[in-house]
Design a protein around this nucleic acid. Sequence first.
DNA 1: AAAACAACTGTAATCGGTTACATTGCGAGT
DNA 2: ACTCGCAATGTAACCGATTACAGTTGTTTT
Lengths: 342, 342
Amino acid sequence: MTLAINQNPKPMSNIRDVARLADVSVATVSRALSNPEKVSPGSLAKVHAAIAELSYKPNMLARNFRSARAYAVLVMVPDIANPFYSLFIRALEDRAQQKGYAVLLGDTRGTPERELEYIRRVETRLADGIIQLRPSSEKSQNIIPPDVPCVNACGCEFTSGPAIRIDNRKAAKMMVDYLISLGHKRIGVISGLRDNPHAIDRLAGYKDALEEAGIPFDKDLIAEGDFTMWSGLNAAFQFCNMDVKPTAIFSMNDEMAIGAMQTLKSNGFRIPEDISVTGFDDISYAKYSDPSLTTISQPAEEMGKLAMDMLLKMIEGEPLSQRECVLPTEFIIRKSTAPVKK
Amino acid sequence: MTLAINQNPKPMSNIRDVARLADVSVATVSRALSNPEKVSPGSLAKVHAAIAELSYKPNMLARNFRSARAYAVLVMVPDIANPFYSLFIRALEDRAQQKGYAVLLGDTRGTPERELEYIRRVETRLADGIIQLRPSSEKSQNIIPPDVPCVNACGCEFTSGPAIRIDNRKAAKMMVDYLISLGHKRIGVISGLRDNPHAIDRLAGYKDALEEAGIPFDKDLIAEGDFTMWSGLNAAFQFCNMDVKPTAIFSMNDEMAIGAMQTLKSNGFRIPEDISVTGFDDISYAKYSDPSLTTISQPAEEMGKLAMDMLLKMIEGEPLSQRECVLPTEFIIRKSTAPVKK
DNA sequence: AAAACAACTGTAATCGGTTACATTGCGAGT
DNA sequence: ACTCGCAATGTAACCGATTACAGTTGTTTT
């Protein structure tokens, strides 16, 4: 009876083994791989034969070390399980892969400690730069050292560094304009946390629309959530119990809108007959919610692509054509909105 | 007027700079960082002072290169935007971070080419191992070379290597048992693609339950989807147009169930009064769908944690206590199921 | 025929850590 | 007094690639 120990006698070969077998120098092997046009056809063939023979795989760790580049970017995201972020990340990863970079995942769970750990990865050269998916307020943005290449792709304003974003204020105004055009005058808001940049911008848009239509702002119509379904579900209770109920609700993201619709329906409201509900982001569930949700679509794919391109330019020292890039949003009307009841 | 060029004169310092400033050898600096107990308090203090003075950050690229370890694992996933996978990934990343490993994201979009590119990352040492989130059939599993550490965490059976999974067959049987106990006899299935391992296992469970209850299997009750909401929506039409309609539908995941409910409701079915619907996975939307979905919850957090632990053990050469780990599922009854109409 | 040039190749230094091994100094055991 | 053991430290080799520089051809120019 034999014990199968050490079955793999480490056939791991390096560039010198290849050089020896191909009877050329290591420089020639290296060139054959990265600058084949500088190597004679004869040598090239010998090198390739040797590589095949040894099933040689270049050690990228050594290559990266030598070139002082990790060929990796870190994506810092508050919560990967959030469908809006994961869509984004898919686009980022796709682009990075195309350009020969790897994506390191950095889920911060919203804690600054985690964030620091990830920033340290760039400082210790494990990553070449950061894509920030966190909506950062002025103060929090500063924890990223100035020499760390970073692009903010959270989509909101008031960031200091390079950024890809949408015009949250305009998009929100457009949505509320639409509700007003349907005859709604008492429009509830389910907001994100008060100091969240997205919430600030979108609330400004809401106020813009109200002002333009001559509707006075009523702070009782603002319910605070935290962008989770659960918080939307709770926030909606505030409206159910009002004496003069709103006829429409502008939720600052789709998840809260879906949560809110749950509450409203179970409290006897018909959507959209009794009350209209709108979302923001156009996550995939928005189309399949009951009723399907009128919302604003962010070009996540496009934003991810552009953000990655921008970061890679910074990393490779190319000049940036623009510090900030504002992308258009799409307004999507579905079944959750209707003219106000007479 | 001055142009601000070269403001950062690269203060990048290495271990030799630190050694010089602290007046010790590089070995002592290295030890001070990785084995401080082997360094005298005096030297330790000098080293730390020098590190602070130079704001030295060790070059992990060099460290990893020397130790021939990337301290990174690649997570290979068919689609990061799938909420079930993203939950999983969050758990994986959390665990990896704890153990000092980075997570490289590898979204394959289901293509074997992409998969090969990611496998190459391990072969070229950019990652130390792979967590496979793809349900792999026998043949497809083989593209991973035997010397690449890999743990399959997709949760299904019949994988050759180490795996974390649930008992899909048993869970499916339990769900169908429950429907039968409610009096349902004609139970439709919305399946995944015919050769998907999850679909195969869960269908087996469905048949087990039918057989035990003495209900004959009717292949017309099987509608094929591909685990997307859209496919669930379409699959449900097959049941709406039947002469003798099913009184319950067992969908093989939540997303298809949510899509199906959409179709059923718009075709005048009341859920659960006219027809019961069940899902699988317990994604976060299952709780907020209309009606909330009876489903099976997989312990994604736990599975992710265990899978990562298993992989890291393999990478670090520790023996595995078990090749396979089967975790229990939870059966969650919500509002989408009810006794069959009299 | 000599010089200039191009195309190809090889030698060896280099990146920034880790660590085997050698060395030193000091206290304890005999 | 001598040896031994131990802790602390230093020297230098090493990991596997890239690449500057030098060298060797063979071809073209003058």
